[in-house]
Nucleic acid binder design. Structure first.
Length: 885
RNA sequence: GGGCGUUUAGCUCAGCUGGGAGAGCGCUACCCUUACAAGGUAGAUGUCGGGGGUUCGAUCCCCUCAACGCCCACCA
C-alpha cells in the first residue's frame, strides 16, 4: 500500500533550529509569565567571558539550564533565565594587549589608561557577543532583555555600593601584606587563583657562619638560594637541642655578608631539612608570619616583573632562573655549597598566566570574610541552600570554614576601578559611591582615585543582585527584584564553587540577609572519551558548534542531558552524539508514520470502554514515563529523564504500539481506525511534550503538525493515577514474550522473514490465552504466523517441533523433517539446565527457615512466584524433550 | 600531609533507604518487511577491584588492602 507522505525521510535539524528560535523570540516565549503554580523560578546563567568561544562546558551549562527552565516553564512557573557576560579582567586585557602589540607594536603603557580602555571597549563591542550567538544556536531560552555585562552601569553601581558599605564597616582594608604576585600580569592575585604544581628543583645545603663563634658552621637547606639577599634572620626550633645555644647569636649570610639574628621559632620543623631555616619575610608566606612574630625587617629584592632589583646586586636584573644559576655558581666558588640534591616540591602557579607566583609584600586591598563566610556556612548547614549532589557541600565548607582575607585589588586597568580616593593636600582617604568633587576633609579639589581595579569575582559575586537591578531602585522595580530574588537554582561546574558559589552566597547574604539561590546543582566536567580534560595543547577538544552542525542541536543536547546526572565527569564520545542523532531521527520517522493518519484522529480521546487493550497499555506505560521524568527533573537527574523517554520511544511506542497499530490502520474497521489514529496522535503529543525540554527543536517541529499553538508554552505531562493498569501491563508483557519467543524460534531454525509458519501454543493461563486468541491477526504481522492454535496444557503436544517454553506457555512450531532434531534437543537440554539452576536458587531460599521467618511478605511472595514459574517451565521443557523421543 | 571521589559487560556509565545486575555504543547472525539501513529481528558477554565482617540474604552497610582521579595545603 502506498501512502502519500511529503515529510522528508530524515529530520532536518538546521531548518528547525533557525525557524523555531525565531518564532520563539517573536512570540516572546522566553519572557517570564505568571502560571498556574503562582510562583517564580529563576535561574542565573554563569556569565561566560566576553573573550570566550563556546566550548563543551558551556554547552553542558546551556543544556542543563535550558532543559530545567523549559521544564519549569511548562510546569506553570513564572520562569526567568538571566543571561550575561563577564568582563573577565585578566584574560580580556591580555587578549587585547596581545592584539594591539601584534598590530601596532605598542603596549598598554604606550597608549595610556584612557586610550587603552577605549580600545578594549571597542574590541568588546565588536567581538564580545560572539558567544551569545553561539548560545542561541543551542536553543537557550533565556530572557535576552535581562542580559547584563559585568561592567554595565548597574553592576558598577553594585560594586561601588557594596565596596563602600564594607569599607565603612571596616571590613575592607588596605594593608602591606605578602601576596601572590604574578610577574606576567604584574598584579597581585588571590589565593584561589593560585594552582600548586609539582616542580622538579634542587635542595641546596648552604654553609652560614656564626659571628660570635667562627668555628661553628650552620648548614641551611633551601630550594631558593637566590632569596638569600632578602633574608633577615635564621631560625631554629627553640626545642631543638642541637641549636638551642645559638639563639640570640648572629648569623652571617654568605655572598652578601650581611648579619642577621638567629631566632627561635616554633614553626621550624626539627625533622625537616637541616633544622635551620633561612627567614625571608619579603618573599615567603611562612617567613612573613615569622617576621611579624619576631619584628624582623622586610627586604624586597624583586621588581614587579619578577626580575631582581638592586637589593640583590650580584643578580640584579636577572630572572629567577638565571639568578639561581648565578647564585649557585658563586656558592660553588666560595665553597659554601655543601650539597645539592634533586627535590620535587609544589610551587604556586598563576591560574591565568601559568607562571610561577612570587610571594611579595605590597600594599593591597583586602576583604575580611570571617563573618560572611560563617553565615554562608550556616545557610548550607541549615538547609537554606542545598547542593545537588549533596557531596559538593564538603568542597564548599572546606573553603568557607577556613576563611582567609580575600585580596581584592588587581593591578590591571580593565575592570571596576576601586572607589577609593586620596587627597593630595591632606591625608584623607575615603570611599565613595559617586565620583566626588572635593576632598571630604579639606574640601580641596586635588585628589585622585586608586588606580587598581577589583578582582573580577568581586563583581561576579554580586551577580544575583545586579542582574536584577540592585542597587538602583528604579531598575530593581523594572526587573522585579522582589519577585525573582532569591533565585531558585544555580547550575554550574564544581571548579568554581570557591570562586563563585561561595562568593555569591557571602555577598548576597551580606546585602539582603537571604541566600541568593536555594539550590546549587553541580554538573559534571566534560572530558574527552578517555576521560582527559579537553585542552588546546592535547588537541582533544570537541567544538559544540561542529557537533551542532554535524548532528543537530537536539542530538547534542540529548547527549549531554543523558550523560549528566550526579557524576563528576562526563566523558564525551562523538559517537554517542551520533547515536542520539539516530534517536532524534527515529522519533521523526515514527511521526512520519503517524502523519498520514492524523486527519482521521479526533481531538478528544474516545470513552474508556472503546479503548483497546493496546491503548490502555501504551497510556499506562506513557504515564509511568511521565512520573519518572517529573521526579527526575525535579532533582536534576537529567540522565534518568532522558533514558526513560528514550526507552519508551524505542521499546514501547515504536517497536510495539506502532507495529501493532499497522494491522488496524491498514484494516477495514473504520471506527477502529479512528480510535487508533486518535490514540497515536494523543501519545505523540505527550511524547513531544515530555521531550521538549531536552530536544526543543524536533519537538516543536512535530508539534506544529499536531496543533496550532506553540509547544514551548504547553503544560507538561503530569502523572495520572487513573491510568495505572498493572493487569494490562502483565498481559501485554506476556504477549510480547510470546511474540519474541516465536521470533526466536524462527531465528533458531534460520527462517526467512517471508516464510509463514504454523504455531501451536499451550497454556493454562486463561486471560493470556484469550488475549492471544483475540490477537491472532497481530501475530501474523509481528511474526508472520499464518495459522495456529492455543490449547490447555492437558492436550497432547505435537511431535518433533521447534519449541520453546516460558513459565506460562509452551510454543511449538511443527517443522518435522526441516529442523535438526539433535540441535533442538541440545537447546532444550541447555534451557533445562539453566532453569534448574534458577529453581535451585529460589528453592534454597524457600527451604531456609531464617529466610521464611525474616524476609518481608512481598519478597517471599516474589520468590514463591519465581519458583512456580521455574517449575512450570521445567515441566514444559521436559514435555518438549519427550516430544522428540 | 589533609579531604573528596572512582573501581559494575570490549568502551562510556545507571543501579534511588540491602532481595540476586541493567542501558547506550560496540560485537555476531539474518533481513533493503509498505515510518525509519541514521533501520529491523534475534543473540553472546559480567568471580559488580581484592580480602574480611554484619545479615536469612551484600553491587548496595562496616573494616581493610590496592589502583586511579580530583581538590585543598607554607616553594626549608
Amino acid at each position: 500500500m502506498e501512502i502519500e507522505n511529503n515529510l522528508p525521510k530524515t529530520f532536518d535539524p538546521e531548518g528547525a533550529q533557525d525557524k523555531w528560535y525565531d518564532v520563539w523570540m517573536k512570540n516572546q516565549s522566553f519572557k517570564p509569565r505568571p502560571g498556574k503554580q503562582g510562583k517564580t523560578f529563576t535561574v542565573l546563567m554563569p556569565p561566560p567571558n566576553v573573550t570566550g568561544k563556546l566550548h563543551m562546558g558551556h554547552a553542558l551549562d546551556a543544556t542543563t539550564q535550558d532543559t530545567l527552565i523549559r521544564y519549569k516553564r511548562m510546569k506553570g512557573f513564572e520562569t526567568l533565565w538571566i543571561p550575561g557576560t563577564d568582563h573577565a579582567g585578566i584574560s580580556t586585557q591580555a587578549v587585547v594587549e596581545k592584539l594591539i602589540w601584534k598590530q601596532e607594536k605598542k603596549n598598554r603603557h604606550d597608549l595610556g589608561r584612557e586610550e587603552f580602555l577605549k580600545r578594549v571597549w571597542e574590541w568588546k563591542e565588536q567581538y564580545g557577543n560572539e558567544i551569545v550567538n553561539q548560545q542561541k544556536k543551542m536553543g537557550v531560552s533565556c530572557d535576552w532583555d535581562y542580559s547584563t555585562f559585568t561592567l554595565d552601569e548597574i553592576p558598577n553601581m553594585a560594586v561601588k555600593k557594596f565596596f563602600v558599605m564594607l569599607f565603612n564597616e571596616g571590613l575592607i582594608y588596605q594593608s602591606d601584606y605578602i601576596v601572590n604576585w604574578d610577574p606576567v600580569l604584574q598584579s597581585a592575585i588571590s589565593d584561589a587563583e593560585v594552582e600548586h604544581k609539582d616542580v622538579k628543583g634542587f635542595f641546596y645545603s648552604v654553609k652560614y657562619k656564626v659571628k660570635e663563634d667562627p668555628n661553628v658552621e650552620l648548614i641551611i637547606a633551601t630550594t631558593r638560594p637566590e632569596t638569600m639577599f632578602a633574608d633577615t634572620a635564621v631560625a631554629v626550633n627553640p626545642n631543638d637541642e642541637r641549636f638551642k645555644d645559638l639563639i640570640g647569636k648572629t648569623a652571617i649570610i654568605p655572598i652578601c655578608n650581611r648579619e642577621v639574628p638567629i631566632i627561635g621559632d616554633e614553626h621550624v620543623d626539627i625533622e625537616k631539612g637541616t633544622g635551620c631555616l633561612k627567614v625571608t619575610p619579603g618573599h615567603d608566606f611562612n617567613d612573613f608570619e615569622i617576621g611579624k612574630r619576631n619584628n624582623l625587617p622586610i627586604i624586597n629584592i624583586l621588581n614587579k616583573d619578577g626580575t631582581f632589583n638592586k637589593n640583590a646586586p650580584e643578580i640584579e636584573g636577572m630572572n629567577p632562573k638565571d639568578a639561581r644559576a648565578e647564585v649557585e655558581r658563586i656558592m660553588t666558588e666560595l665553597d659554601i655549597l655543601v650539597e645539592k640534591k634533586e627535590h620535587v616540591h609544589p610551587v604556586g602557579h598563576g591560574q591565568r598566566s601559568d607562571e610561577i607566583i612570587e610571594p611579595m609584600v605590597s600594599k593591597q586591598w583586602f576583604l575580611n570574610t570571617t563573618q560572611m563566610a560563617a553565615d554562608a556556612v550556616k545557610a548550607v548547614e541549615s538547609g537554606e541552600m542545598t547542593f545537588f549532589p549533596k557531596g559538593w557541600e564538603n568542597t564548599y565548607f572546606a573553603w568557607l570554614k577556613n576563611p582567609k582575607d580575600w585580596c581584592i585589588s588587581r593591578q590591571l586597568w580593565w575592570g571596576h576601578q576601586i572607589p577609593v580616593y586620596y587627597c593630595k593636600h591632606c591625608e584623607a582617604k575615603w570611599a565613595a559611591e559617586t565620583d566626588p568633587t572635593e576632598c571630604i576633609e579639606c574640601k580641596g579639589k586635588d585628589f585622585f582615585q586608586d588606580p587598581d581595579v577589583l578582582d573580577t569575582w568581586f563583581s561576579s559575586g554580586l551577580w544575583p543582585l545586579s542582574t536584577l537591578g540592585w542597587p538602583d531602585e528604579k531598575a530593581m522595580k523594572e526587573k522585579g527584584f522582589d519577585k525573582f530574588y532569591p533565585n531558585e537554582t544555580l547550575i554550574t561546574g564544581f571548579d568554581i564553587i570557591f570562586f563563585w558559589v561561595a562568593r555569591m552566597m557571602m555577598m548576597g547574604m551580606k546585602v539582603t540577609g537571604k541566600v541568593p539561590f536555594y539550590h546549587t546543582y553541580i554538573h559534571a566536567i566534560v572530558r574527552d572519551k578517555q576521560g582527559r580534560k579537553m585542552s588546546k595543547s592535547l588537541g582533544n577538544g570537541i567544538d559544540p558548534l561542529d557537533m551542532v552542525k554535524q548532528y543537530g542541536a537536539d542530538a547534542m543536547r540529548f547527549t549531554l542531558a543523558a550523560g549528566s546526572g550526579y557524576n563528576r565527569d562526563l566523558n564525551l564520545d562523538p559517537e554517542r552524539i551520533e547515536g542520539y542523532r539516530n534517536f532524534v531521527n527515529k522519533l521523526w520517522n515514527a511521526f512520519r508514520f503517524v502523519y498520514p493518519f492524523l486527519d482521521k484522529a479526533q481531538d478528544e480521546l474516545p470513552v474508556k470502554s472503546e479503548w483497546h487493550l493496546h491503548d490502555k497499555w501504551i497510556l499506562a506505560e506513557l504515564n509511568d514515563v511521565a512520573k519518572v521524568m517529573n521526579e527526575a527533573m525535579d532533582v536534576y537527574r537529567f540522565d534518568e529523564a532522558s533514558s526513560a523517554i528514550y526507552a519508551f520511544v524505542y521499546d514501547k511506542y515504536c517497536s510495539w504500539y506502532i507495529e501493532l497499530s499497522k494491522n488496524i490502520l491498514y484494516g477495514t474497521d473504520e471506527r477502529e481506525k479512528v480510535i487508533r489514529a486518535t490514540m497515536l496522535k494523543f501519545c505523540f503529543k505527550k511524547i513531544v511534550t515530555l521531550l521538549h525540554p531536552i530536544t526543543p527543536f524536533l519537538t516543536e517541529e512535530i508539534w506544529s503538525y499536531l496543533s496550532k499553538d506553540l509547544l514551548i508554552t504547553q503544560e507538561y505531562v503530569e502523572y495520572d493515577k487513573s491510568l495505572e493498569n498493572p493487569e494490562v501491563l502483565e498481559l501485554m508483557n506476556k504477549f510480547i514474550e510470546l511474540t519474541t519467543g516465536i521470533r526466536n524460534i524462527r531465528s533458531q531454525v534460520n527462517m526467512k522473514p517471508k516464510d509463514e509458519i504454523d504455531v501451536r501454543i499451550f497454556s493454562d493461563d486463561k486471560k493470556f490465552a484469550k488475549f492471544t486468541y483475540d490477537s491472532r491477526r497481530f501475530l501474523k504481522a509481528l511474526a508472520n504466523v499464518k495459522s495456529g492454535t492455543i490449547r490447555d496444557k492437558n492436550q497432547e503436544r505435537p511431535k518433533k517441533s521447534a519449541s520453546l517454553a516460558t513459565g506460562f506457555a509452551e510454543i511449538f512450531v511443527p517443522l518435522e523433517g526441516i529442523i535438526d532434531i539433535s540441535e533442538q534437543v541440545n537447546r532444550i537440554n541447555k534451557d533445562i539446565e539453566r532453569t534448574k539452576a534458577d529453581y535451585a536458587k529460589v528453592e534454597g531460599k524457600l527451604n531456609n527457615q531464617n529466610f521464611m521467618a525474616n524476609a518481608p511478605e512481598a519478597v517471599r511472595a516474589e520468590v514463591l512466584e519465581k519458583a512456580k514459574l521455574a517449575q512450570d517451565k521445567l515441566a514444559s521443557l521436559n514435555l518438549i524433550l519427550a516430544s522428540f523421543q
